[in-house]
């Protein structure tokens, strides 16, 4: 019973390594698709915002840092914190201290495990060696398997594009909501007036 348990836990710990390593790779951006789009003008709004239903994209919603029951926003909807991934080719930075602690833990695990395997009375070398090689093999094979999944996507080379006239150039709030099938652009009075005046010629570079 103990050996299967030991193997299970060792595999779990080692198996997290390539999973986490692979988890650094950003998922590819979703394919382009047509969606319903509405532009609304709200003269009382304090700022413009773009409301995107979560069903149309695939953001990851982390629980609010304080945990607990999500707070209620307007209309009874929960207020969520979300990660909006930037450049898909950029991998997120890993906490260096966490990696160092993991390294020390790996060393302690392997060191203590090896000493225990060697010092066991009775059946020592063969089964212990098999266990250690199996654990190392899991790490090696899973790393190679994840390696064959392909490298992270590289940033696309910048191509020259025609600069279009700009109708609106400013900031707005990006709001992700659960439910719905329509992307709404809510313009405040200032933004709407700016659009009404007509597009501006692009600044050439």
């Amino acid at each position: 019973m103990r050996y299967p348990l030991l193997t299970v836990f060792a595999v779990f710990g080692l198996g997290l390594v390539p999973h986490v390593a692979f988890a650094d790779l950003a998922p590819p951006p979703p394919a382009a698709k047509e969606v319903k789009f509405v532009v609304e003008v709200d003269e009382k709004a304090k700022g413009s915002k773009l409301i995107v239903p979560q069903t149309l994209v695939n953001p990851r919603f982390r629980p609010a840092p304080g945990g607990g029951v999500p707070k209620e926003g307007n209309g009874g909807l929960a207020v969520l914190e979300y990660e909006v991934e930037g450049d898909a080719a950029v991998e997120p930075a890993r906490n260096r201290n966490h990696l160092m602690i993991a390294g020390v833990a790996f060393t302690l695990a392997l060191g203590l495990g090896g000493i225990w395997i060697v010092r066991r009375t009775g059946r020592s070398g063969a089964r212990g060696l098999a266990l250690l090689v199996a654990a190392g093999g899991v790490l090696a094979v899973s790393t190679v398997v994840w390696a064959n999944a392909g490298p992270p996507p590289k940033p696309k080379e910048k191509k020259e594009v025609m600069l279009l006239p700009v109708a609106f150039d400013g900031k707005l709030t990006l709001e992700m909501v659960r439910g719905g099938d329509t992307i709404k652009l809510v313009l405040d009075k200032e933004a709407y007036d700016a659009i009404k005046t007509g597009p501006k010629k692009p600044e050439g570079k």
Partner: peptide, 19 residues
């Protein structure tokens, strides 16, 4: 000897590469 060949390197590699 064989065990030591695999094990010793496995123990120190995380320190050398991660720490």
């Amino acid at each position: 000897r064989l065990f030591a060949g695999f094990w010793l390197t496995a123990c120190t590699y995380p320190i050398l590469w991660l720490v």
